[in-house]
């Protein structure tokens, strides 16, 4: 952190000012002039929170994607299908058992197992052939999409939110003042806040696992130099299978999460895949902090775009991607 400040004083200042401005916008009571410029504060705040929680969902999907890519150079274009599969599975399990947590767990485990099967039966035999692996994942994504359409049809599903997570919660943020001077407080769905907290906890745990444990050390070594790692006697295939299982499992878990506060339908796989592509391109491929930064930027851009310039909301994320590519082709948080 201090390293970054020392290297890029101007950028740090810009970021600091932007954060301060944002905090002021969040906590201050808006004057009529500001309401005229930005619209109502409630709209601004909900765009902000929706953007952050959407970023949390994107982080869950994209971190698995970027982990698999970083270690195995495998652009898993079937990642969106794994997400959708996890979502549908979570829906079925949730209907069957009535428990959201069981659905979450089962989706993680089963989709992780699918990832193991993919790695053991397909990708292991074409190690180092990047293009061929990518083509295989394209084929798999087509097959998965059609199988899911076959079994679940074209209807829209939504995973039922558990009772203890449903309903709004009041945040200590004033959106407006009543005429008697009393503040109107912001309310926000509890489930989205829970998801945000969950994603942050998971991100911190992943960071700790990568940087403080032996397995994490092996994974980091594999990202830097796969051949050297296997030359030192590590069973690198085992590490690969574990990472693939974890990455795929995260996609499945994210499917349940996404199915809870968005919806599940055919085509959602492509949308999520494209979002995670943009997230990892913006953040830097193979980097978990990059995925977090990218997910936050993309989530915020989508939500603010849809509030303030509805026609070109989706375009905005791609414009950000092109700008990042032009200025810093390796991504914002990548080392190389």
């Amino acid at each position: 952190m201090s390293d970054f400040v020392a290297r890029r004083p101007i950028w740090s200042l810009v970021i600091l000012v932007a954060v301060a401005l944002l905090l002021w916008l969040v906590f201050s009571v808006w004057t009529p002039g500001m309401e005229a410029a930005f619209g109502r504060k409630r709209v601004f705040l909900s765009a902000l929170f929706n953007g952050i929680t959407l970023g949390a969902l994107y982080f869950l999907v994209a971190s698995g994607f970027t982990l698999i890519f970083g270690l195995m150079r495998n652009v898993n274009l079937a990642h969106g299908s794994l997400y959708l599969f996890g979502g549908y599975l979570g829906y079925s399990i949730g209907e069957l058992t009535g428990s959201w947590l069981v659905a979450l767990l089962v989706a993680f485990v089963v989709v992780g197992l699918v990832g193991v099967l993919m790695q053991v039966f397909l990708f292991r035999w074409m190690e180092g052939q990047d293009l061929r692996q990518t083509l295989v994942t394209i084929g798999l994504s087509i097959i998965f999409a059609d199988l899911l359409l076959w079994s679940y049809g074209g209807d829209t599903f939504q995973v039922t939110t558990p009772d203890w997570l449903s309903g709004p919660v009041t945040l200590p943020l004033a959106v407006a003042l009543r005429s008697n001077g009393e503040a109107v407080l912001m309310t926000y769905p509890l489930v989205r806040i829970a998801i945000l907290v969950g994603a942050i906890v998971l991100g911190v745990l992943m960071w700790l696992a990568l940087n403080r444990t032996r397995v994490g050390m092996l994974v980091r070594a594999g990202v830097d130099d796969r051949d050297m790692l296997s030359a030192t006697g590590v069973r690198v295939q085992l590490v690969f299978v574990m990472v693939f299982a974890f990455g795929a499992g995260l996609a499945g878990l994210a499917g349940v999460v996404g199915g809870t506060f968005q919806s599940l339908q055919p085509g959602e796989d492509t949308r999520i895949l494209l979002s995670s592509l943009v997230v990892v391109i913006v953040g830097g491929m193979g980097s978990i902090p990059g995925a977090a930064v990218g997910a936050l930027i993309v989530g915020l851009a989508e939500q603010f775009g849809s509030v303030y310039m509805p026609t070109y909301a989706v375009m905005l994320t791609f414009v950000i991607m092109v700008v990042v590519l032009a200025i810093r082709p390796q991504g914002l948080a990548a080392r190389r």
Binding site: T134, F318, L325
Partner: peptide, 19 residues
């Protein structure tokens, strides 16, 4: 997209195409 290499090209061109 030629600013990046190899397998990255697929991702970037896919993103441009969907844009």
């Amino acid at each position: 997209s030629v600013r990046t290499e190899g397998i990255y090209t697929i991702m970037i061109t896919l993103a441009i195409a969907s844009a």
